[in-house]
Design a protein around this nucleic acid. Structure first.
Lengths: 236, 236
DNA sequence: CGAATCCTTGACGACACTCAAGTGTCGTGG
DNA sequence: CCACGACACTTGAGTGTCGTCAAGGATTCG
């Protein structure tokens, strides 16, 4: 990790686009920025480990962070993939405590790091900052609920179809996109083994999905919306 | 549903025990209570449906609420089982919008219902109320993360064992408990079909778990902490 | 005490994980 | 520019877990 630096104007501009900073006026932004430093991590570097004392929360400027839990036998269960603009570990602002999951950079990445204690001190006299954090927490809660619901109700091909539908650039009934990260990371995000993702893409070929490296083309979006739960049986 | 009533002193005392009200002083509590009414629902009544305009958030006083998502083919995926003291749908306080899941009473139940718009109006001048909601949101986010992680890493018997370990009354190395609700509801909470829960209990018999109706006895808690992922193979 | 509901058990199938080998892709260096 | 090597991805085979359907047994409530 590169040691913390004060945010430059470029960094401030990037932070201004985030959900966290939306709805804050100039004074509030500056107050929040005063508790922030900029840090860089290399691929696979750990930002923090599960169980460590929580000292900062983070906002992704560039790159990706993977949040995951450790299981009983040291298996890793992925919680969320954070993209530029996402923040994480803000849930420690109110109560403090330890990090409940581990965070790892999945590329050479840049983060804004906010001192929890300093931010906590702002809340009493800056209600809008509290509301900004609430807004961020609400989003995360809803997206985690989405994730839980899709884990419990959708098969692998359905989850992949949903991901494609919500991330592709439409061009008439067709669409295309480029994955922002490795397929193995997408697999983790969707709660799948890499092999299962690969098989899901294979089965989606029949629905007009063409995969080539990180580029994906979809011939008809409407077909993709109707991926059935049960894999169609072979002709009798 | 019984039409809304003003909270009685009994209701106020119950609300005082909740996470939401902890950390609020007398004035703040009264301000929040001013936006609340008490409502009763019969078993299986719907508090709200997924997609409806969000008008209230809720706090359970007695009984249970089941939060669930509707899938593509009208299947239901359970998100959370709310017990007395739990609140839900507070995530709509900041941004408003529609309910993102359905809520159903699973017993004859009593709830405090808070008007979202009125609570939203309190936030600017009552930062502690915002912090109380933040605290509640943080808890829900972390518990939803717990749920997601256990879905992705643990088998049915392991999930049941975890539930027992976190809810039983210890008596030396042994313990016992009584389920607060039907087994079918516990199954939904754990993301299982009722049959799978039943089989999980069966497999836990070998670990010293005795189930009789809603009463459960555990002969040795330490054994329960080491339920393996793979069901032990039969003797050769 | 009786009936409705809930729970349990069995059989079966589908989905997804693991292990393993083969194929492709990308970046590096000759 | 091509060759090589590392790594990511794909594909196949086999296994385990869980969901569904169906029927039999237990609880609980009136």
């Amino acid at each position: 990790m590169t040691t913390g630096l004060k945010p430059s104007n470029v960094h401030k501009a990037m932070l201004g686009e985030t959900i966290l900073f939306s709805g804050l006026n100039r004074d509030e932004r500056n107050a929040l920025l005063a508790s922030a430093t900029i840090v860089r991590y290399q691929m696979h570097d750990m930002l923090f480990h599960q169980g460590e004392r929580g000292e900062y929360f983070y906002c992704v400027l560039t790159g990706f962070a993977r949040l995951y839990r450790l299981g009983d036998d040291n298996q890793e269960g992925d919680i969320r993939i954070c993209e530029p603009g996402d923040s994480f570990a803000e849930c420690l602002v109110t109560d403090g405590g330890d990090y409940r999951y581990a965070a790892q950079a999945m590329e050479h990445s840049i983060f804004a790091r906010f001192n929890l204690e300093q931010v906590r001190a702002l809340l009493d006299h800056r209600p809008h900052i509290g509301m900004a954090i609430m807004r961020s927490l609400s989003r995360h809660l809803l997206s985690t609920i989405d994730c839980l619901a899709s884990d419990r109700m959708q098969t692998a091909p359905q989850r992949v179809a949903t991901y494609l539908l919500t991330h592709c650039k439409q061009e008439g009934v067709a669409a295309k996109m480029r994955l922002p990260f490795q397929k193995s990371l997408l697999a983790r995000k969707l709660g799948l083994a890499p092999e299962a993702l690969s098989r899901a893409f294979s089965s989606l070929r029949a629905a007009g999905v063409t995969v080539s490296g990180r580029s994906i083309e979809i011939s008809n979006l409407n077909v993709l919306k109707t991926i059935p739960a049960i894999t169609s049986r072979h002709a009798p």
